[in-house]
Design a binder for these strands. Structure first.
Length: 945
DNA sequence: GTGTTCACG
DNA sequence: GACGTACGTGAACACA
């Protein structure tokens, strides 16, 4: 035994497998294998286990599971855990997989019928502590807190923090040995432990601290002053005792396996089979590297090499202390940089390494309002620092306790020192959503280049599979729970801006972000080559960053006065309509409440129909109200529709947009999200300028408030029918392609081909139906969808689709092909090779599956169109410059680009923009139908369109 | 925080 | 044939 030989006691890790799976399942984004089996919790578990095996000082490891729902506690109290809902269906297959994973990692998986995992953990922890071992229980279950002691600690793998005596005291208000007493009184609604009514944790702790323990308290319950509390305690003493039996963990379970069986074993090749089967690509890469390393070491050792083997990470791994295990690497050893000498050392290190991860902290997520508070740098995994430049001390409470502004390098000086590095062409700057850092730093006169972006790399690799925020990716690829912003700056009303955060907290948070960014880059960048996605990243996503950043910075001019006039007009008309609605309904109610409206329409007025959705509320959407106008002839639904339109226009646009005007520039600066959609499109937020009204006359009034500077005009250039053209191309619909080449009326042609009517003198209704079919093709047509769109029966819709397929067999082939590819690979591809993941394509729920199938059909079309306009955007600034144009590109709305150009440039700018857009696919791809872009100009956006 | 509704492509 | 639908977004509001 090693225990006797070494001074340090052996370290035993007991992992609460059942607890982990529930928490990981809810904390991690949904992921699944290409056969549809969900795997998010399994991947989280594997990452956690790997870290434990590789990075901790564990001598013994076991994972403990619940064997079944029924335990001896049900004999004590039949309702124990009775309220527990059934596990969600996506979780169920993961239980078995996690046991499988445990064995694949060569770790003991322990369970025992009749006992909960918690009891087994209590038993083993007690045994191990008794023989002098140190015990870490990996779990965030508060029920295990009663076990904490000198030799036993908890480690919360989701929050990545140790739970010792201090944390238990914080949670329960008592030391670990009294936790049971507090729980017996307070009860636990999630486990259905009754406790004493009216007593929560706060009160329970107060009582136990006064009386010492539960028995003494119950014996002296009569002395308690508060009458209600006294009565409850006296009457429910037995309930408290039963509760105690329920929450007290059994430390003497007659276990079948001894601690010695848990001795840590090395991971071997068996694990690869498991991770491959479950399609854990980045984990496989990590394991491959480690297994390779291990086998090299073994070979060298066998060959008698005596020289030390160099490891890739230069820093020797520190021996993990009990306080921080098992997450030793991320989050440790960061440096707070408060003087120039220290900063210069980091700059030198970055120059040497040729790359640095860079991240800034500011007072706002909004680029234009953000003030720089600090910068963090990482120059290798685990080597990171934080440079505060704008901290203004902490705000104290009423008793004081606030702190003075801390020592830091003056902002201007820090920027002066860092600017050459950030602009150095020989040093790669890696950021996570670096567009933000670039935009803020640009305001301080720094132009960051060259760049890489770990968020966009992740987006190119796995767009549509999950989100790409740093927190989520850290969990996914590094198995590390990052410190959350709310953890350092507070949440809700107490949240403060980062300049008020204390330096120690700021260091831990900010330096970790740079460290994690570095590691994500290290993990993900090589995959771009391995998975043949480097081209998408290097020719589309990365070059788009500065282009979009410039558009955001330029912003668009808005006529606030005009919007205020519109708002007043809308308000007065809404008031009139509202009075009429109340008069017709016979009661006053909130027209804006779908619930109240539904009750008025269907319960009170007894209008026909009235379908309740899954939440039990009547549906009152526009389609329902329009239908109701026809079927009932009642005037109310139309009034509500009118009111809703005005209400939408007023609150979302007329009132909100003026508030978004930046006082310094006098313009509105949206933010384009580069990694938000599953298809490659951009998304616009804060405010969303991609959904400014245009379809109705009232709505167009809003668009008129988007104006050009004096001496300028707005130029709008949009692709004509781009997705349908791409459908013709990608589905090889020859007649459709020919029609586009001929510049024919595409919908009339479809009508002619499908319904067999001549184009000359065609009924507009017939053309309209054909148009709906053409749109349907892009969306992954369904009989139901088409019937809804056209207001016809499903049978009729089905017949149309059949006719279409018969006429154009290519489209059916295309649809089947996309579904097959999505099922087999989990993603579909655009013409340019962008992957669009379609998770859930193999779902056993047919509704969800159909949904994902239609997404798989649509994504290559929508995504290719997105690729093309992005290529155009990237070329636009240079094309304008080459033509001597001063015009600026302001907005992108999926198939449209909006420019602001000097009046004199009107024609030339239109010509250049159209040429760039129409040739954007070249030379990378040839498309056998022409891409057409139409240009329009005007004093405002409505005129230009 | 979730669901409904509606603005856009 | 099941099951609930056209694809992709973001913001405001009501309600829990």
């Amino acid at each position: 035994m090693t225990a006797a030989a070494s001074k340090k006691p052996d370290h035993v890790y007991l992992v609460d497998g059942s607890g982990y799976i529930f928490r990981a399942f809810h904390a991690l984004p949904p992921l699944s294998r290409s056969d549809g089996t969900p795997t998010n919790a399994v991947l989280g578990f594997c990452n956690m286990l790997l870290k434990l095996v590789e990075d901790s000082d564990a001598e013994y490891i076991a994972v403990i599971f619940d064997a079944g729902r029924k335990t001896f506690r049900n004999d004590i109290y039949a309702d124990y855990k009775a309220h527990r809902p059934e596990a969600p269906p996506e979780l169920i297959p993961q239980f078995a997989l996690i046991r499988e994973a445990t064995r694949a990692f060569n770790v003991s998986a322990i369970e025992m019928p009749g006992y909960e995992a918690d009891d087994l953990i209590a038993t083993y922890a007690t045994q191990a502590a008794a023989r002098g071992n140190e015990v870490t229980i990996v779990s965030s279950d508060k029920d295990l807190m009663q076990l904490v002691g000198d030799r036993i600690a908890l480690f919360d793998p989701m929050k990545n923090r140790k739970i010792g005596e201090a944390e238990v005291l914080e949670k329960f208000g008592v030391k670990p040995d009294k936790v049971v007493d507090v729980q017996s009184l307070a009860g636990d609604s999630s486990d259905n432990v009754p406790g004493v009514p009216g007593i929560g944790i706060k009160t329970a702790a107060e009582l136990i601290n006064t009386y010492g323990d539960l028995d003494t308290l119950l014996a002296k319950a009569g002395e308690i002053k508060q009458p209600k509390r006294r009565e409850n305690l006296v009457n429910n003493a037995e309930l408290a005792r039963i509760s105690r039996d329920l929450v007290t963990l059994k430390r003497d379970v007659p276990v079948e396996h001894g601690l010695d069986e848990f001795v840590k074993r090395e991971i071997d090749g068996a694990v690869m089979e498991f991770v491959t089967k479950n399609e854990f690509r980045s984990l496989a890469a990590k394991l491959n590297a480690r297994l390779g390393e291990a086998s090299i070491k073994a070979t060298r050792a066998a060959g008698g090499f005596t020289a030390p083997v160099a490891t890739p990470s230069a820093a020797p791994a520190a021996t993990p202390s009990a306080a921080t295990a098992p997450a030793v690497k991320i989050g440790e050893g960061y440096e707070l940089v408060q003087n120039e000498a220290a900063l210069l050392r980091w700059i030198e290190a970055a120059n040497k390494s040729g790359a640095l991860a860079f991240d800034i902290e500011t007072t706002s997520l909004n680029v234009n309002e953000a003030k720089l508070v600090g910068m963090s740098l990482a120059t290798q995994a685990g080597k990171a620092c934080y440079v505060p430049v704008g901290h203004i001390g902490t705000t104290g409470d009423l008793l004081g306790g606030g702190a003075e502004a801390p020592k830091q390098i003056p902002l201007a000086r820090a920027i002066e020192l860092l600017k050459p590095l950030l602009e150095d062409a020989a040093v790669l700057k890696i950021g996570h959503n670096i567009k933000y850092d670039m935009a803020v730093m640009a305001r301080y006169g720094v132009t960051i280049a060259p760049i890489d972006d770990s968020m966009l790399i992740s987006y190119v690799l796995e767009g549509g599979a999950h989100g790409h925020g740093m927190d989520e990716l850290s969990e996914l690829h590094l198995g590390h729970a990052t410190i959350k912003f709310g953890d350092v700056a507070g949440t809700g009303k107490q949240q403060v801006t980062f300049d008020h955060v204390s330096l120690d907290k700021a260091l831990a948070y900010a330096a970790e972000d740079a460290d994690v960014t570095w590691r994500l880059h290290e993990t993900l960048k090589p995959r771009l080559i391995a998975e043949r996605l480097m081209t998408i990243y290097e020719t589309i996503e990365r070059p788009l960053i500065p282009v979009v950043a410039q558009m955001e910075r330029d912003g668009v001019k808005i006529d606030a006065k005009e919007l205020q006039r519109l708002s007043q007009d809308f308000a007065s008309r809404m008031g009139e309509i509202e009075r009429e609605i109340h008069r017709i309904a016979g009661t006053e109610f909130n027209v804006g409440s779908p619930k109240q409206l539904g009750e008025i329409l269907f319960d009170q007025l007894k209008l026909p129909g009235g379908k309740k959705g899954k939440t039990g509320a009547y549906a009152t959407g526009a389609d329902v109200l329009e239908e109701l106008t026809v079927t009932s002839g009642h005037p109310l639904p139309q009034k509500v529709l009118d009111w809703r339109q005005l209400s939408k226009l007023k609150s979302t646009y007329a009132d909100a947009l003026p508030l978004a005007i930046n006082p310094e520039t006098g313009r509105v600066h949206t933010s384009f999200a580069l990694a938000a959609t599953s298809t490659g499109r951009l998304a616009s937020t804060d405010p969303n300028l991609q959904n400014i009204p245009i379809r109705t006359e009232e709505g167009r009034k809003i668009r008129r408030a988007f104006v050009a500077e004096p001496g300028h005009i707005l130029l709008s250039v949009d692709y004509s029918q781009i997705e349908l053209r791409l459908a013709a191309e990608m589905a090889e619909i020859e007649p459709l392609k020919q029609a586009f080449r001929d510049g024919a009326d595409i919908h009339a042609m479809t009508a002619s081909q499908v319904f067999g009517v001549p184009i000359e003198g065609m009924d507009p209704m017939v053309r309209r139906q054909a148009k709906a079919i053409n749109f349907g093709i892009i969306y992954g047509i369904s009989a139901f969808g088409l019937s809804q769109q056209l207001g016809i029966g499903q049978g009729e819709a089905k017949a149309y689709i059949e006719a279409y397929f018969k006429r154009y067999p290519g489209i059916r082939d295309y649809m089947d092909r996309m579904k097959k590819i999505a099922r087999e690979k989990g993603y579909v591809e655009t013409l340019f090779g962008r992957r669009c993941y379609v998770p859930g394509i193999n779902d056993k729920n047919p509704a969800r599956r159909s949904f994902m199938e239609r997404a798989a059909i649509n994504a290559p079309l929508q995504g290719t169109a997105a690729d093309i306009i992005k290529r155009a955007m990237i070329r636009m600034p240079a094309a304008f410059a080459a033509a001597g144009l001063k015009g600026r590109m302001l907005l992108q709305v999926h198939d449209e680009l909006l420019f602001e150009v000097p009046v004199a440039e009107k024609d030339e700018a239109s010509r250049v923009a159209r040429a760039i857009m129409e040739g954007a696919h070249l030379p990378a791809r040839q498309i056998s139908v022409p891409l057409i872009a139409d240009a329009g100009t005007g004093m405002n956006w409505a005129e230009a369109h």
